[in-house]
């Protein structure tokens, strides 16, 4: 197989990844630039990181964003996992077509439409715009992403395990929590992380649904970017990229370790069974 990996394929991959990573790399490099002019290199410096710490508006926004992201990701993971179970386990119920439509449509729906429609809902029911409304909005679109991630894992899940547990007397609820959930856990965790980063990242929907007291970090960054490129934004961006990269790497290490552990347990069980 390795022999068929031609020169063209290798070139496509190298160029493709250069295209994907070079802009991010440049952004990170220039966050350590001494000069206020972002594109002129004037020596290494961490002064922009230091000046971030004294930027109260930015720090407040970061705190709001972290709380919104944490709460919305957690609720979205519960709802999204339920939706994924509903979609894979119950192939026939009334309104299933609408249900799957409601799951898939938000994935591609332009954010301006989702944002505007949620705002009008909140206004219609008289809910004041702020922390709560942003969180509700974020739960709504990110639960669909969680549902898709978890569903793709559930589809390949061997149901006989769960049935075996129930044959041995476990209630469906217990079977789910003790057999199914541990197995689909990697997907649930990556669903949570995806929901968290989506919320961390969202500008458009937050701009529509947030009120004066709850400016999120992307809203803050956006208003500064409109005024021009500054090394300070590069520094915030670098920190955000760093956090996300650490999270993703940590999660993949944890997943890998779980995999190894599981395989070892399976082997052990098999050996015992044979012996």
């Amino acid at each position: 197989m390795g022999g068929t990996w031609g020169r063209f394929n290798i070139a496509a991959i190298v160029l493709g990844f250069a295209f994907l990573y070079l802009p991010i790399l440049l952004l990170v490099v220039y966050s350590f630039n001494e000069s206020r002019l972002v594109t002129v290199w004037a020596g290494f410096s961490t002064r922009w990181y230091a000046s971030l710490l004294s930027n109260d508006g930015l720090m407040d926004a970061a705190w709001v964003t972290a709380r919104v992201a944490f709460i919305s990701a957690t609720v979205a993971t519960v709802l999204g996992t339920m939706a994924a179970v509903a979609l894979t386990r119950y192939t026939r119920f009334r309104g299933r077509l609408l249900f799957s439509g409601l799951i898939f449509a938000p994935l591609v729906m332009p954010e301006v439409i989702t944002g505007l429609s949620l705002l009008l809902l909140f206004v219609a029911v008289g809910l004041d715009r702020g922390f709560v409304t942003v969180t509700l909005a974020h739960i709504t679109f990110s639960m669909c992403f969680v549902a898709v991630v978890v569903q793709s894992r559930l589809v390949s899940f061997d149901r006989s395990l769960e049935e075996a547990a129930m044959d041995l007397g476990a209630t469906p609820l217990r079977a789910f929590f003790q057999v199914t959930l541990p197995i689909i856990m990697p997907a649930v965790i990556s669903g949570w992380m995806l929901a968290f980063t989506l919320s961390l990242d969202d500008l458009v929907i937050a701009s529509f649904t947030s009120g004066p007291g709850a400016t999120t970090l992307p809203m803050k960054i956006y208003s500064q970017v409109r005024l021009g490129v500054t090394p300070e934004i590069n520094a915030v961006s670098t920190i955000l990229i760093g956090i996300v990269a650490l999270g993703v790497i940590a999660a993949s290490i944890v997943n890998k370790r779980r995999d190894v552990l599981r395989r070892r347990e399976e082997n052990l069980a098999r050996e015992r069974g044979e012996g």
Binding site: P23, I24, L26, L27, Y30, V38, T39, M193, L194, T197, L200, D201, L203, P218, I221, Y222, V225, V229, I233, N234, S237, L240, I241, V244, A245, V248
Partner: peptide, 13 residues
């Protein structure tokens, strides 16, 4: 996984 806004911003520079 990295912010959409930041990736767009990177291109301005």
């Amino acid at each position: 996984w990295t912010s959409f806004l930041i990736r767009v911003y990177a291109w301005i520079g």
